[in-house]
Amino acid sequence: MGTKTTVNYQVEKKRYYNVLVGLLLLTTLTFVQPYVFQAGTFTAQMFIAVVKAWLILMYYMHLKGEKLIGSMTIFALSLVTIFFVIVIAIDVTHFQFADESYITSGSLGSEMDISAHTTHGGE
């Protein structure tokens, strides 16, 4: 039913190329960034990725104007974010056994008895 929407080919095509230029610029930025400043590389890289993802979602995947699918996407993405907040920001960042745990010992594992250190919860 909704399939028979007519498209304005030239306008749409132009939009595709505009977005392509934007994405290429951002990709270039990705390459330049680590050599401009090093502190915060990770944050900067992820920020650029998010902007790129937003462009792809909105224009290449035609999410713009999709109310229902858009809100579902937001729901799914916020769920992933919450997983990150809980597991990373609340749990691992506060890892309590860094000094005594085998997995963070950083030492060479070959000669150590592994079975005694299977989880970092063992006291």
């Binding site: 990705t30 390459f31 960034q33 680590p34 050599y35 090093q38 590389t41 990770f42 890289q45 992820m46 650029i48 990725a49 790129k52 993802a53 792809i56 979602l57 290449y60 995947m61």
Partner: peptide, 20 residues
């Protein structure tokens, strides 16, 4: 597009974070 989208995150996370 989703395959591309995944790469958009895979690439910087693996290749670029240690760039400099």
């Amino acid at each position: 597009d989703i395959v591309h989208l995944i790469w958009v995150f895979v690439f910087p996370y693996f290749y670029m974070i240690g760039g400099g």
